[in-house]
Simulated scan of single mutants.
Amino acid sequence: MTRATGIGSFPGEDARAYAEAVRFVLGELPPPTGLPHVPELPGRGATATMTGRAVAVATDLGFDLQPAGWRVTDAEGVDQRRARSLLAQDLDELEEQSQGYEGPFKLQVAGPWTLAATVERPRGDLALADPGLRRELAEALAEGVRRHVADLRRRLPGVVEWVVQLDEPALPSVLAGAIPTASGFGRHRSVEPPEASAAVATVVDAVRASGADPWVHCCAADAPLALLRGAGARGLAVDLSLVGPEGHDQLAEALEAGESVVLGVPAGDEGRVVEQVSRWLDMLGLQPTDGLVLSPPCGLAGTSPTAARQALTELSSAAARL
């Protein structure tokens, strides 16, 4: 059965908005045609962004917040403690509203390469410039994900299927050597595919060890789908409009192998969503399968609350029709 889910982020800037997002996700994305997820509200500040959430989850590394953004430090900083406190408050709200819930659930966290491309090393410039620190970030994230999933299992005992979505929007730029240096006058060296795959695999293996299904979301053009599958990802989440010919083949192979494919399609008209997805399936000679999932092309933080709710409601209805 085709399902619908959200990528993760919602609009909103306070605790009340977060509670409303949780209520909506649980109410409008119920199984079997929905996959509810842990909402993220990056509009609340640096501690709630994708990088801030990864900083809160990662273990054995300290971070603090500088004017330019997050930086790796020798010890945990006050803003890292605030990020962890905010995450705990959000999970308290989720736990309270999820009493009695039974079914699948998804959580999201930045992947190792997007984290390396968005935090600075202690002596300036991005962590991406330091191969040793890149490995440390992947290992800290892997251990943090294990603990994060264990915490959520305790809070939501009725969940029968856990999915962990690694968000890697920066990975294509990391591979292409397109990430700017701190000065803005140069670019960081490209990372070779074997190293890129190994770092993703470090976190993917941790997800699997926790008993969850590892998905990777990359809504950028040239998403390296073959690399992600080779690293062990069991689900691929993409913006359908940015997928090239080779990418379509990779998605078809994933579906035929029993893996999950999350197609990011813009909502606005339920009938058009069904038509677009049906045409894509026909092009590849496929039928709707249990592995097919519909989602917005990317997060919904930049939309209005009304538009975000409408998008997920339409996608849920389209999934039921498919």
Rank of each mutant, 00 (worst) to 15 (best):
F185I: 05
L286V: 09
E102A: 15
W280P: 08
A54K: 01
L322Q: 08
T118M: 01
E102K: 14
A311W: 11
H217W: 04
L87Q: 09
Q250L: 14
V262L: 05
E168N: 08
G258R: 01
L242C: 07
G27P: 07
L227F: 06
A307I: 07
T181M: 03
A237Y: 01
D130K: 07
R208L: 14
W280L: 13
R189E: 15
I7D: 11
A127E: 09
G264P: 10
Q108I: 14
T33P: 00
S278L: 05
G27K: 03
R234A: 15
E13T: 15
S9M: 00
E259A: 11
L107S: 12
A4Q: 10
V119K: 03
G302N: 02
L300A: 13
R23Y: 05
A117C: 02
Y18I: 02
P112H: 00
A252L: 01
A254G: 05
A83R: 10
P288T: 00
V55D: 13
Q89Y: 06
L255P: 01
A226Q: 08
L300H: 06
R155E: 02
V216Y: 07
V163K: 07
G186F: 08
D222C: 12
L300W: 02
E143W: 01
A311V: 11
R309E: 14
T202F: 02
P11C: 00
A15L: 13
V119G: 12
A221W: 00
P157D: 11
G184A: 09
V261A: 13
L29R: 12
V55H: 10
G268Y: 08
V200Y: 01
A129C: 04
D151P: 00
P36W: 04
P67Y: 04
L156N: 08
E161V: 01
S295Y: 02
L315N: 04
L41W: 06
L322C: 12
I7Y: 04
G230Q: 05
R309L: 03
A301C: 08
A75T: 15
R155D: 05
E246L: 14
E13L: 09
G244A: 14
R71H: 12
V203G: 11
A110L: 06
G132T: 09
R121A: 15
D282S: 13
H188Q: 03
G132R: 12
L166D: 13
V145M: 10
G111R: 00
